[in-house]
Structure formats: C-alpha cells, structure tokens
C-alpha cells in the first residue's frame, strides 16, 4: 500500500465516527425544522379536522388522567415526607406547604407530567403513525385525495399542545392534595390553613411562566411523536424504533426547553 493511501485511511480514521454523526444530526435537525414549518403552514389550511382534534384531545387528555393523577399524588406525598426532616432541623416545619407548593407548581409538576406524557402519549403517537406508514394507510389517505398531514399530524400536535397544560394543572392539584395528606400524617393542619399557606406562597411569577412552558412541552411531545412516526422507513422494525426515539428525543427536548424557560423567567421576572 503506498503512503498516500495510508495517509488517506489515517485521515478517515481521524475523522472517526464524528463526521457521519454530525452530518446525521444536522440533516435530522433540518428535516425536523421543515416538518415544523409544514405543521405551522397546514395549521391554517382548511379543512379543519375538528372532530378528529376532539377525539385526539380525548385520547391525550382524558385517557391520561388516571396515570397523571396517581403520579401527581405520589409526587406530592413523597416530596412532603422527604422534605419534612430537613425543614424540622431548621425549625421551619411550618414552611412545608409553601415549599412544596412552589416546588410543584414551578418545576416538578410540569416537568414530571410532561415526561410521563412523553412516555405514554409520545410513544403511542410515534408507534401509531409508524404503523400507519408501514401498512400504507397514510398513502391510502393521500391517494383518496385527503391531506393526511392535516388529518393525522396537525390534530395530534394541537391536541398535545392544548391538553398538556390541563394535565399539568390537574397533576399539580392532586400533588398538593397528596402533600396535604402527608402533612397530616405527622401533624394536624386544617385544609383551609394548608391551602391558604399554599396560595400565599405563590406569586404570579411562579404560576404564569410554568403554565406557559407546558404548552411548549405539549407541542414538543406531539411534534416529535408525529415526526418520528410519519417519517419511519424501516418496515415493522421502524415502528419500534419510532416509538422509542419519540420518547427519548421528546424527553430530552423537554429538559432543554425547561432550561431555556428557567433562564427566560429569571431574566423577565
């Protein structure tokens, strides 16, 4: 082997897996951006699939209530039980309802609920759309003159965007109920006192930004689920891959969005 060939091979090895990985990352980002732009455009193009949107809201919202409720309750209960000893050490046990409320409303409630929905709803959307793609159901819609993007993608993304804030509010309320129960395990605090302390401790800057960011979390879950499912291309294997990558990518995106939201909130409020 001559020296120039050896050098070329060495240079290739030096690039290692980075170049294909970077290329794949940027091409995926470009494709996701185009998909998002297509969603924004199709959002305003009739026909508006209201019945399908309501159906998806039912699936995303109503069907997720039990899971979100149970996790919310446990979240409030555990957070209260875990925080009590530390606060007791500083003689600040009376601050427990306020501390738990701020933690849940500002951060834990939205993020945990969004992650649970990414697992339940995001994977469901990814698998459903991928399965529709590999069994040619999406093509069948297209050839019968119906815009499958409007019917399948726009309705699902809109449903997750609208329903996640509702689920987060529900989860927060249940979490506070769990916290109230935990406070009463070792002491006695009336319902009125607990909730008046909760409300006193919360400011506009706690509630508003955390509520707004839940719309973005919902959008991310729907967008990634639809993007992964709609663009699947590896047959039945692709169905599993789409569901899996929808959960991974949307969970990651939720954390990234949360970080950005915290920075913006810090600057503005």
């Amino acid at each position: 082997m001559d020296s120039s060939k050896k050098k070329a091979i060495h240079e290739d090895e030096d690039n290692g897996p980075w170049f294909p990985m970077l290329f794949s990352f940027f091409s995926e980002m470009t494709s996701l951006t185009l998909f998002t732009a297509k969603y924004c455009k199709n959002l305003f193009i009739p026909p508006y699939e209201i019945n399908e949107l309501l159906k998806q809201c039912y699936f995303v919202g109503y069907r997720s209530l039990p899971l979100v409720g149970i996790t919310g309750f446990i979240m409030g209960l555990v957070l209260t039980i875990q925080s009590r000893p530390t606060l007791s050490e500083f003689g600040a046990e009376s601050w427990l309802p306020a501390m738990v409320a701020v933690s849940i409303i500002r951060e834990i409630g939205p993020v945990i609920t969004a992650l649970i929905c990414a697992g339940k709803v995001g994977s469901g959307i990814g698998a459903e759309l991928a399965s529709m793609r590999v069994t040619e159901q999406i093509d069948a819609m297209e050839v019968s003159g119906i815009n499958p993007f409007n019917y399948i993608v726009v309705t699902r993304i809109l449903a997750t965007t609208l329903m996640l804030p509702v689920l987060v509010v529900f989860s927060d309320v249940i979490a506070l109920a769990g916290s109230f129960l935990a406070v009463n395990i070792n002491g006695e605090v009336t319902f009125t006192l607990f909730f008046s302390q909760v409300i006193d401790s919360l400011a506009f800057s706690d509630v508003f930004p955390s509520f707004i960011k839940t719309f973005f979390f919902g959008f991310a879950i729907g967008l990634i689920g639809c993007y992964k499912g709609y663009n699947t291309d590896k047959g039945t294997e692709g169905v599993g891959l789409s569901a899996n990558s929808a959960v991974v990518l949307s969970s990651l995106l939720i954390f990234v969005m949360d970080m950005i939201a915290v920075q913006i909130t810090d600057l503005l409020f």
Binding site: S131, M132, T135, E136, Q137, D139, A140, M141, E142, V143, S144, G145, I146, N147
Partner: peptide
C-alpha cells in the same frame, strides 16, 4: 388531489384504517 379522486388504488395490504369500522373506512 382532484385527479387522485378519479384514480382508485387498491394496495397490496388493502391499507384499511385500523382504528375505523368498515363503514367509517368507506365513508372516509
């Protein structure tokens, strides 16, 4: 889309919509 409505396509797998009944499939 207007042209597609004049062209019927029977897929290899029939491509019926899984979440709909036969009636809903045909009405779609």
């Amino acid at each position: 889309n207007d042209l597609r409505k004049k062209v019927g396509f029977l897929f290899q797998s029939a491509a019926l919509y899984d979440s709909m009944t036969v009636r809903e499939n045909l009405k779609f």
